[in-house]
């Protein structure tokens, strides 16, 4: 945690980074202007800025594509994660179930998920369906494996303790195994969400009518590299948005792994206890 007064010194921390960035862009601009780099293939930073301004401000034509890709990644992720968690929970509860499921999971993992793109497009068409499907398929494995590994961790002492308290099998699962699995499960969900975005974009590159992926390939085919790079920025933004959403959820759910959050939760529980005692 930062001390409150650190706030006053933030320019001192940020300025060197800004200076480096400006220097790099300046070097790039100069290299292109001096003719040592091909202007068509590598546009100048100023040209990219202009393209960004046009796409995001004056025309605003990027947003429709932005939200389509975002929706594809998110829905694909929700489906993939739902199936992965359901299968992981079932596998952790039944060894037989796991014996039948795990070979398929392994095959799915060693097959490059991206290679399924043509098949999935043939099955689900050019629209959002195929993008969602590919996102779901390729985010499945990391979530499945992490959740299952988390649920399989057993602590004999704690399980014995629960049994000595007369806990049912169901209570051992919900009160001990599931909470203990949450940190690993969330690690899997974080990887999965990033993977889902890759799935959606790759499917768009292959065949699509809308989305930032198809927009980017159109610009590249037209050799409008500045606009293409400006579109890439929107993927970065989607990636950041998804990443920080997941970080936020992780912080809330797995609070006991974060010192700062733990103190806040501790205070909240103390208040809740006090108001419960008044009743």
């Amino acid at each position: 945690m930062h001390e409150p007064r650190d706030f006053l010194f933030w320019p001192a921390r940020v300025l060197p980074h800004l200076a480096l960035l400006v220097a790099l862009l300046g070097l790039w601009e100069w290299a292109v202007a001096s003719g040592s780099v091909d202007t068509i293939m590598v546009p100048r930073p100023s040209a990219i800025m202009a393209a960004i301004f046009e796409l995001y401000v004056t025309k605003g034509s990027i947003y429709q594509h932005f939200f389509i890709t975002l929706a594809e990644a998110v829905f694909g992720f929700l489906i993939g994660a739902g199936v992965a968690i359901a299968l992981a929970v079932s596998s952790s509860l039944s060894e037989n179930f796991e014996r039948y499921v795990s070979p398929y999971a392994v095959v799915l993992n060693v097959t490059p998920g991206i290679a399924l793109t043509p098949i999935i497009i043939a099955w689900f068409g050019y629209g959002m369906g195929s993008k969602i499907a590919l996102a779901a398929v390729i985010c499945f494995f990391p979530i499945f494996v992490n959740t299952l590994t988390g649920l399989r961790q057993t602590d004999p002492d704690r399980e014995e303790l629960f049994r000595s308290f007369g806990a049912s099998r169901r209570q051992v699962f919900t009160q001990l195994r599931v909470p203990a699995a949450l940190p690993l499960m969330f690690a899997g969900l974080k990887i999965g969400l990033t993977t889902a975005l890759i799935g959606a974009v790759v499917a768009e590159f292959a065949q699509a009518t809308a989305g930032v992926g198809v927009l980017m390939s159109r610009f590249s085919f037209a050799l409008d590299m500045a606009s293409s790079l400006a579109t890439l920025l929107s993927m970065t933004l989607i990636g950041l948005l998804l990443f920080y959403t997941m970080e936020f959820l992780d912080d809330r759910v797995v609070f006991w792994r974060r010192d700062a959050r733990m103190s806040a939760v501790s205070r909240a529980r103390a208040r809740a206890w006090a108001s419960g005692a008044e009743k």
Partner: peptide, 9 residues
């Protein structure tokens, strides 16, 4: 037990 076996959440 030797380990406190508390639930950390």
């Amino acid at each position: 037990f030797q380990r406190a076996t508390l639930l950390e959440w």
